[in-house]
């Protein structure tokens, strides 16, 4: 069973690489049981989206 710290590390890495089967299974099980980590995972996706929009916003000001 992953700790929340390990799960959040994997949720961050999931933005940059494809997790292997073992990592993904452990993460899915943890996230199913843990609502704070579920939120953290959604927020990682939001951060990535916001960062790309921030770039457009910043360039839009130009």
């Amino acid at each position: 069973m992953l700790t929340c710290r390990e799960a959040t590390q994997l949720l961050s890495e999931k933005q940059d690489r494809i997790l292997n089967f073992k990592e993904l299974s452990a993460l899915q099980f943890h996230v199913m049981m843990c609502s704070p980590c579920r939120r953290f995972g959604k927020q990682m996706k939001s951060l990535s989206l916001l960062s790309k929009q921030y770039k457009k916003f910043d360039e839009g000001q130009k």
């Binding site: 929340c4 704070p36 939120r39 939001s46 916001l50 929009q53």
Partner: peptide, 19 residues
């Protein structure tokens, strides 16, 4: 290795509303 109670993520608006 589990969340401190006070540090647990809060609910966000969806990103479209935020931006």
């Amino acid at each position: 290795g589990h969340w401190q109670k006070s540090e647990r993520p809060k609910a966000w608006l969806n990103p479209e509303e935020m931006m």
